[in-house]
Simulated assay, not measured.
Amino acid sequence: MGKDTAVNASDDAMSFIPPSIDTARLLSGDSYAYYTPCPAGITPYDKSTTVPQTTEPTPCVLGVDEAGRGPVLGPMVYGAFYLPLELHHSLLAQEHSFDDSKVLTPAVRANLMRLINTPGENLYESCGYAIKVLSARDIGSGMMKPGAAVYNLNAQAMDATIEIIRGVLQDHAVNVQEIYIDTIGNPATYQAKLERIFPSIKITVAKKADSLYPCVSAASVAAKVTRDVALEVLYESVLKAQQLDDNSAAPEGWGSGYPSDSKCVGWLRRNMDPVFGWGSECRFSWGTAKEMLEQKGGARVDWPADDDEGNGMLSDFLLASGPGKGSSKDGLRDWFGQRQAEII
């Protein structure tokens, strides 16, 4: 596919749902990782035998980038994209015109992602990728841990990067010789840490790496498309639940999910439960969400202190005998598990 084909992306590409989308885990608020099989054009290390490998593992380059670091809604997604070193520029930059995902249109991004996942296409046969989806729930719970236990966003991002690189190296046995990464914070500090973890690999951490190195551009596209589709899946689930609850017409959407988006902020205001706030699609650690809960009408819940005298097991109550403790027909023990008609 050349530049003209990339621009003329089809509607089919826009509706493409990549295999990196795990709907069940997204809706349950779980974080997860996804890895493509090692492509046919790459010979991995042979881990199945102690006999010396007759075919040399293919020297590869790998790029890492993220999507969705700043939004208050939806996951943050990290992508790692790898391919043979000899194809790095010719396949990605020259033939398929990969670039920073932010400068590509949604249609072009979706079409590239479709080609990466379509058997028979040269991107599919020569390239592989890994995705780490960090759910809004897990991001928030990590950042809101008390005191020294706090798990800040930079640490979560670093761990996600390390996890998917290790997965490609160890689980998929890919011979990665060069790694390029878009920086988190200070590039030198970030690079030094990764070099200690992966000492045998040439690592380059740089600002704007997604526009400098084609493999990082491709990782950016994989992460961005996964994030965009994940956000759609989450919104459709929330919308369906709302329509089931009040049988209302489809409300205005939640926009991009960024705090700077007025549509997103408006959705948060309109859909805030006074006790529970929002679902697992929201990062409660973000200032936007905190302010709404604390100052815009969120109800404060004071949980009673634990009392040793009242800490009996529920099973003790259900199995108890004697007056007022389940011995009568009106007691909880006799009621529990019965059909409503039987109680009446």
Rank of each mutant, 00 (worst) to 15 (best):
Met1Ala: 12
Gly2Lys: 10
Lys3Phe: 08
Ala6Lys: 12
Ser10Glu: 15
Met14Gly: 05
Met14Ile: 10
Phe16Ser: 09
Ile21Asp: 12
Ala24Thr: 05
Tyr32Gly: 09
Tyr34Ser: 10
Cys38Ala: 14
Ala40Gly: 03
Thr43Trp: 00
Tyr45Thr: 01
Asp46His: 00
Lys47Leu: 14
Ser48Lys: 06
Val51Asn: 07
Gln53Trp: 02
Thr58Gln: 02
Asp65Leu: 06
Gly68Arg: 11
Gly74Pro: 04
Ala80Thr: 08
Ala80Arg: 02
Phe81Tyr: 10
Pro84Gly: 08
Leu92Tyr: 14
Ala93Cys: 02
Ala93Glu: 15
Ser101Lys: 03
Thr105Phe: 12
Pro106Arg: 06
Ala110Glu: 14
Leu112Phe: 12
Glu121Ile: 05
Ala130Glu: 01
Leu134Met: 13
Asp138Leu: 12
Asp138Phe: 11
Gly142Arg: 02
Met143Asp: 14
Asn154Val: 02
Ala155Tyr: 01
Gln156Leu: 09
His172Gln: 02
Val174Lys: 02
Asn175Lys: 13
Val176Met: 04
Asp182Cys: 11
Ile184Cys: 11
Asn186Ile: 11
Pro187Thr: 07
Ala188Phe: 08
Gln191Thr: 03
Ala192Gly: 04
Leu194Cys: 10
Arg196Trp: 03
Pro199Ala: 09
Ile203His: 05
Lys208Met: 00
Ala209Ser: 06
Cys215Gly: 01
Ala219Met: 11
Ala219Gln: 14
Ser220Tyr: 03
Ser220Met: 08
Val221Ser: 14
Asp228Ile: 07
Leu234Thr: 02
Tyr235Ala: 07
Glu236Arg: 11
Ser237Arg: 07
Gln243Thr: 03
Gln243Cys: 07
Ser248Tyr: 04
Ala249Gln: 14
Pro251Leu: 08
Glu252Met: 08
Glu252Cys: 02
Gly253Thr: 07
Gly257Lys: 09
Gly257Ala: 08
Tyr258Lys: 09
Ser260Gly: 02
Ser262Phe: 07
Cys264Lys: 05
Cys264Leu: 09
Met272Cys: 14
Met272Arg: 15
Asp273Gln: 08
Pro274Met: 11
Glu281Asn: 05
Cys282Ile: 12
Met292Pro: 01
Leu293Phe: 05
Gly298Met: 04
Gly298Leu: 07
Ala299Pro: 00
Trp303Arg: 13
Pro304Ala: 13
Asp306Tyr: 13
Met313Lys: 15
Ser321Asp: 04
Pro323Met: 11
Asp330Arg: 13
Asp330His: 04
Leu332Asp: 03
Trp335Gly: 00
Phe336Cys: 14
Gly337Gln: 12
Arg339Thr: 03
Ile344Asn: 06
